[in-house]
């Protein structure tokens, strides 16, 4: 049994003025201890998917239109609020996109971590304090700094505190939403390496959201590429990097300047992702796709299995035409 299995998840934000189709029929699977990379550009629906798993979608606009989120054999969409509270923090924890907002400026970093442990860990305050300091040391922050406030820390250190907090209750799944986007590459490398070590030591599975294919290459076991609320390609790291198939995935790879090859010009995908409040019929990518036919503009595409461990949402690829 997989640790997490998302089936046909759809989340819309409905207001008087618009109906945003943020997540549309997403299927994802995460195995115990493995890391799934979720890649896609701004507005693709990555954060909404993550918040959806934790049932943190903003109400009342945010609505689950369909789906199941099977975590350890139980559907989280059917769980009670009490059950969800115990899942969050204890079993699944999340590192948010902006590390700076995740910390409380008026509490010392030690107290913040202790609070999380105390809340979820059913242990005494003294024990919680002790474990908080241990967590800090684990992420490479000296024990004597536990009494300092977030503003006394650099960006990289703050992010390490956030990671310590997320791992404090030994979750089986960590959702990390662009955990290093705000950091410099050298600090990013330190943080990612530390996360990988901690994960390995504890067997934690991870959903790693990023738009950096380099980070995916170095940290993930499987990859899902999202576009306009849909997963358009899904596979093992090996398949996606050696044999990408969907024209959008190919476009993403063509947009990144190479570090060892010399190329005069980049080969970006022209145009923009469609507005999720006004998605086109047919393939959501057809108006930017060099291979699109009339059929692509009218027929819904299915995420179909090409080969074991590799799925693509493109009829033309499936027919072997591309």
């Amino acid at each position: 049994m997989s640790l997490l299995e998302i089936k046909n998840l759809s989340i819309h934000f409905v207001t008087r003025y618009s109906d945003v189709h943020a997540v549309n029929g997403v299927d994802l699977t995460i195995e115990e201890g493995k890391t799934l990379g979720l890649v896609g550009e701004t507005g693709a629906g990555k954060t909404t998917t993550a918040l959806g798993i934790l049932r943190l979608i903003q109400k009342p606009q945010g609505r689950y239109e369909s789906g199941e989120i099977i975590f350890k054999g139980k559907d989280l969409l059917k769980a009670t609020d009490d059950e969800m509270r115990s899942v969050r923090g204890n079993e699944i924890s999340m590192i948010f996109q902006d590390p700076m907002t995740a910390l409380n400026p008026i509490l010392t970093v030690g107290d913040q971590i202790a609070e999380v442990i105390h809340l979820h860990g059913k242990c005494s305050q003294a024990e919680a304090n002790e474990r908080a300091v241990k967590m800090l040391e684990m992420v490479g922050i000296r024990a004597e700094r536990a009494g300092e406030y977030p503003h006394q820390f650099s960006g990289g250190m703050k992010q390490r505190v956030v990671i310590a907090m997320a791992l404090a209750c030994n979750p089986s799944l960590l959702i990390a939403d662009e955990p290093t986007t705000a950091l410099d590459v050298t600090i990013q490398a330190q943080v990612l390496e530390m996360m990988a070590d901690l994960k390995k030591g504890r067997g934690t599975a991870m959903l790693l959201i990023t738009h950096d294919l380099g980070i995916v290459a170095e940290n993930c076991d499987d990859v899902a590429i999202m576009y306009a609320g849909e997963v358009i390609e899904y596979g093992t790291l090996e398949r996606i990097f050696h044999n990408p198939k969907h024209p959008y995935t190919l476009g993403l790879f063509g947009s990144i300047p190479s570090l060892d090859k010399d190329e005069e010009r980049l080969h970006p995908i022209e145009g923009l992702m469609p507005d999720p409040a006004a998605l086109p019929a047919g393939c959501k990518f057809h108006d930017r796709c060099a291979y699109a036919t009339d059929e692509c503009a009218s027929c819904e595409q299915e995420l179909a299995e090409m080969e074991s461990g590799h799925k693509v949402r493109c009829a033309r690829v499936m027919k072997g035409e591309i």
Partner: peptide
Amino acid sequence: LDVSIQAQILN
């Protein structure tokens, strides 16, 4: 910017 848009501006 996103990589695909970034590549457009760089070009």
